[in-house]
Simulated assay, not measured.
Amino acid sequence: MAVTADDEEFAAFERRGWARRSATYHDGFGAMTAGLHEALLDAAAVGAGIRLLEVGCGTGRLAARALARGARVVATDADRRMAGAAAAALPGALVRTARLPGLPFAGAEFDAAIGAFVINHVPDPPAAVADLGRVLRPGGRLVLSCWDTAERNRAQGVFFDAVAEAGAARPPGVPAGSPFARYAGPEALAGLLRAAGLAEVRVERAGWTHRVDADRWWQDVLDGTVLTAALIEGRPPQEVERIRAAYGRLAARYRDGFPAAALVAVGTRV
């Protein structure tokens, strides 16, 4: 499927948003995504001597865990500020600024590749998966994660529900969704990997609990997401207060932690 002007605008919107969050992502929203990192490393069979590529590395938290397992790590991020933060945190890894697709690596260079919540941010998911498959050696494993439905992933879903409960229309200039939306289910996600020529494809659901104070989580999401935060930030103060009040009522049921949920896709290069 060809990349549309809307897809390109979504990618530009994302780049602008992430450029403002390189200093605030790690300790907030990044800490929530880390709840899945060990499972992703296990799925990719990351261990001593494995040459691993991580795309969308953010501030380097997953790559640090891979290094601790003895892997040889190359990490990339599309935002130079994020890549800079990762490079400072990962003296044992090679960190580069690179977009997906368009990875600056030769074919069959890596034993494994992981993209933790990155495929849902790219303008051309089929091309991105094909590029990741290209850089894997035969038998190499690709592992990708994306968010599950808002009904399962309450850590973010509570914000969407709060916006709806407050009756707040989508702000001008905010994309209705991502180009990945059509693949955001188990069968479609598996099909995306198979279409790229990967074999032994499986998609599984994963869940964990993110324990955080509701007031802190409100700020973490504003400081650590782009599309979700854009549904709230920049509105008139009275609209933000209505959304915040709705969020408070909805979040009260999660005093023991917000349920987080993701899909994890695994495929092997033939």
Rank of each mutant, 00 (worst) to 15 (best):
C57V: 15
C57D: 05
G58A: 15
G58L: 15
T59Y: 05
T59F: 04
G60T: 13
G60K: 09
G60L: 14
R61M: 15
R61Y: 00
L62G: 11
L62P: 13
L62N: 11
A63S: 15
A63H: 02
A63T: 06
A63F: 03
A64I: 01
A64N: 05
A64G: 13
R65S: 11
R65F: 01
R65D: 10
A66P: 00
A66N: 02
A68W: 00
A68V: 00
R69V: 03
R69T: 02
G70D: 02
G70I: 02
A71T: 08
A71E: 08
A71M: 10
A71W: 08
V73L: 09
V73S: 04
V73N: 04
V73K: 04
V73E: 05
V74K: 07
V74T: 14
D77A: 11
D77L: 12
A78E: 00
A78S: 14
A78Y: 10
A78H: 03
R80Q: 13
R80I: 01
R80W: 05
R81E: 13
M82V: 07
M82K: 08
M82Q: 13
A83K: 01
A83W: 00
A83C: 03
A83G: 05
A83S: 10
G84P: 04
G84C: 04
G84T: 05
A85R: 15
A85K: 14
A86T: 05
A86W: 03
A86C: 08
A87R: 12
A87I: 02
A89R: 14
A89G: 05
L90T: 09
L90G: 11
P91V: 11
P91I: 09
P91F: 08
G92H: 04
G92Q: 06
L94N: 01
V95P: 09
V95S: 06
T97E: 15
T97G: 13
T97Q: 15
T97H: 02
A98G: 11
A98V: 12
A98F: 12
R99A: 14
R99F: 01
P101I: 05
P101S: 07
G102Q: 10
G102Y: 11
P104M: 11
P104A: 13
P104E: 09
P104C: 12
P104T: 12
F105N: 06
F105D: 08
F105P: 06
A106M: 13
A106W: 05
A106V: 15
